[in-house]
Nucleic acid binder design. Sequence first.
DNA 1: ATTTAGATCCTCT
DNA 2: GAGGATCTAAATG
Length: 228
Amino acid sequence: MRDVWAGVAAGARWGVGEFALRPREMARRLIGAVLVRRLDDGTLLRGVIVETEAYLGAADQASHARNGRRTARNEPMYMRGGFSYVYFTYGMHFCFNVVCGEEGVAGAVLVRALMPTAGWEVMAANRGLSAGWKERDLCRGPARLCRALRIDGTLSAVDMTTSASLWIEEGDAKLLTEASDGGRRGVRIGRSARIGVEGAGKEWAGKPLRWFVRGSGFVSGTRKVNGG
DNA sequence: ATTTAGATCCTCT
DNA sequence: GAGGATCTAAATG
């Protein structure tokens, strides 16, 4: 992971340049970065990104932009890198994506889990959890993450390079080490097939387009999927 | 620890 | 009208 931070300052807000990557590279690059949400009352909620999935354009049969589809819902996927794409699914959940690449080309990264670093109490309240909750459960999974950070459809197509409500900051190696459950063997990044896309058919459902911090209790999915 | 069913409604065909 | 980039609780090994 060290190479990822070469020459960049921890805590700096990402600009257009950081988002100018293709989905695969973006998904890998986002691991360890910090997602920041500022509520209307000024409360800051933060978390280190520990799990992502890349969604490509026309060829990717698991993507909302498959076969070149362009609809009102997926329009943000075609925007310039740095915009958000939030969609509603399963009748009750929102999922948050980071749009990447150049304008006119579909591509985004689903952020699936965070290690919360600020605002735990507010996140728990947003999730509707009662006493006894654990930090590791607050943002484990894309829908939980959105609920904890109060991200919904009104935060789709937001420019995260300028927004006062939602943005990404450069990560810090120490925080990622913490997220990796001690990280005694160093921070290791695992890869696997994406979750919940079986319907896309063997070829695309099987591609290793999911990235996660190995051994982290903040990552979603089963032990089997996470390779122990 | 793993599996199952049910919730619930927007989006696209 | 069908299905979904999910989550929770309950049941079962």
